[in-house]
Design a protein around this nucleic acid. Sequence first.
DNA 1: CATGAATGAGTATTCATTCAT
DNA 2: CATGAATGAATACTCATTCAT
Lengths: 193, 193, 193, 193
Amino acid sequence: MSSAKERLLESAKRLFSQKGYYATSVEDIVESAGVSKGTFYFYFKSKEELFKSLVEEMHLNIVKRLENFLEKELPLEDALIEYAKVFLEDIYQNRHIAQIFLFQLVGTNEEFRELYYTKIAHLRELLTKMVDRAIQKGEINYKNAENIVNLYAGFLRMLVLEYVFREKEPDLERVKSLAQEGVKVLFRGLKNA
Amino acid sequence: MSSAKERLLESAKRLFSQKGYYATSVEDIVESAGVSKGTFYFYFKSKEELFKSLVEEMHLNIVKRLENFLEKELPLEDALIEYAKVFLEDIYQNRHIAQIFLFQLVGTNEEFRELYYTKIAHLRELLTKMVDRAIQKGEINYKNAENIVNLYAGFLRMLVLEYVFREKEPDLERVKSLAQEGVKVLFRGLKNA
Amino acid sequence: MSSAKERLLESAKRLFSQKGYYATSVEDIVESAGVSKGTFYFYFKSKEELFKSLVEEMHLNIVKRLENFLEKELPLEDALIEYAKVFLEDIYQNRHIAQIFLFQLVGTNEEFRELYYTKIAHLRELLTKMVDRAIQKGEINYKNAENIVNLYAGFLRMLVLEYVFREKEPDLERVKSLAQEGVKVLFRGLKNA
Amino acid sequence: MSSAKERLLESAKRLFSQKGYYATSVEDIVESAGVSKGTFYFYFKSKEELFKSLVEEMHLNIVKRLENFLEKELPLEDALIEYAKVFLEDIYQNRHIAQIFLFQLVGTNEEFRELYYTKIAHLRELLTKMVDRAIQKGEINYKNAENIVNLYAGFLRMLVLEYVFREKEPDLERVKSLAQEGVKVLFRGLKNA
DNA sequence: CATGAATGAGTATTCATTCAT
DNA sequence: CATGAATGAATACTCATTCAT
């Protein structure tokens, strides 16, 4: 049986992702976790701290995965396709926390927005590094790595927003295939500049 | 001199976009507008209703602009580039309310998220129509209009998120040129499928 | 066509009697009367003053009617029966304002309760006088006039509460006949002490 | 020492009965009880719910008492006299909550009025049963049980209104003796029909 | 006479957080 | 570790009343 802290984390993830940070009360969380309020504050300094720790967790997951990818040094097209698939799978597996990270953080309040931009900057850096390498290797002819990240990351975000989060039971295979097609389109454009 | 209602609307836009829906209190809004609480409720049924009316306003603006574009029947590449520029200009001019529409709605609570998806669906439809026309005319060879919308709209969203909203004083000309470059890359990819 | 003041009075009577003093807002009243708030305060100093003036009006009505009855110097039984009928008819005709007078005044707040007791004391006095006369004339053998008023007035109040006010469309003839029967029962008891 | 909940209930009873439902604020109640606002809402869902629970409590008290009386199967005159005494004693002991039940409920708003009629209907039924039995046994000759209840209950209500609630320190013995006399008068009337 | 925009004190209710047990 | 009673500042919203036009 899961511990009180784990149950609190699970409940928080689910409720934050469903109802949003503000509309989720500590009361909601402890009730759903079946523990007392005192217990909540034994494990977490505050509601905000819990939220931020979820964000941190998700961020570290994505970063780790992305760094692993970088080490493989795949050709860019393969890398972009493979990573897109892994990313979508990952996001789907961690839907709740991912929703918080990708779409709640920016829109909730000033502090969270800043946190978002800090975390995202890190991820963009990693992606930029990957693209830069391909530019150096002459794999593509459009050489603005930052803007390539805009195209690629914007596309992935859109897929997540429109398919993974919007639909109750997303057809992940279809989303992955959309991702693959999209990246191919993109890559052709990058090569033929 | 501006009327009480106008001042309330301006204050609300600014504060919602800065601090977010929940972190902005009616107190904040009326204080910033220099009117009493009673006046707020004389003009708006509730904080929520005011928020939603701002969203509606922005939505109608974007739809109108997009419909105008559709009527022009430009070649797709030109249309995508021109619309991107107009869109970015527009979003910049209406930064506050646009921030609310594009990034707060999804992340705030369940009701707002549903509202977001409803509004966005409408915009995606219009874009899809534009792309479909180009497919019929043989302008491009990748024929999944929906996915092209994912690529294009995702890219624009990312530009807004990373440049227009992130930076205090965004260099709009640079963003537009990134947009133009990105669309060209994309279009090449679409043509050479 | 009725004047603004009359329409305000009518609306106030109806709304106060239906929803109660506190649950009826000045807004409700002016809306239902089709006039502006300014007009309300042109004719009435305050919501409370309007309410009290309605109470005063009803009180004067009942007092006048009762005094007329006293002058007739009927035998007690006839007087009690006749007055009961007239009273019920009257209350029915002025249902709204009567509801306010008889049942809202006591239960609403301290000030109104005191007002109620003052007004009611006056009515009880008149009734006591009527009964005293009958005692002096030897018409009845139970000689506690105050308690007779308790029996009689309590009975009438109960009829009003249970039949005139409770039912949407009260059968007034039936209520009057209940009143007549009840008074006869009462009178027999008074005579045979 | 009494618990926070008990103190809240006591304060609420007293204040509601003195100032009325609307004129008593939650602030008033918690201040008088010496607890915080949060504590109020820890124990009661709302001001209205607390009010209704007081009503329910009083209603159950009266019903229980009345049912006990019914079981005794006393001759009607004795029953009416004995019950009147017990009722007055009871009402006096629970003055505050009784005032709420008997005189505030009807006059406050629509919802409470309906609640009043529901509760009172129950009490009238029990009394009617008691009277019906006496009619069947031939104890009285006036056979309209419902109207007898009107006479009896109206009389008791009037005693409560005029003596128990009106006076700061009511002379309960005198009220009980008025009740006894009144019932005797009534009973003679009923017998000699 | 009449309007309706504007006021601001007041109200019920929420909720993150604390702490004695 | 765990509980849950208690806190009180904060919040959205109401409403009687005023007053310039």
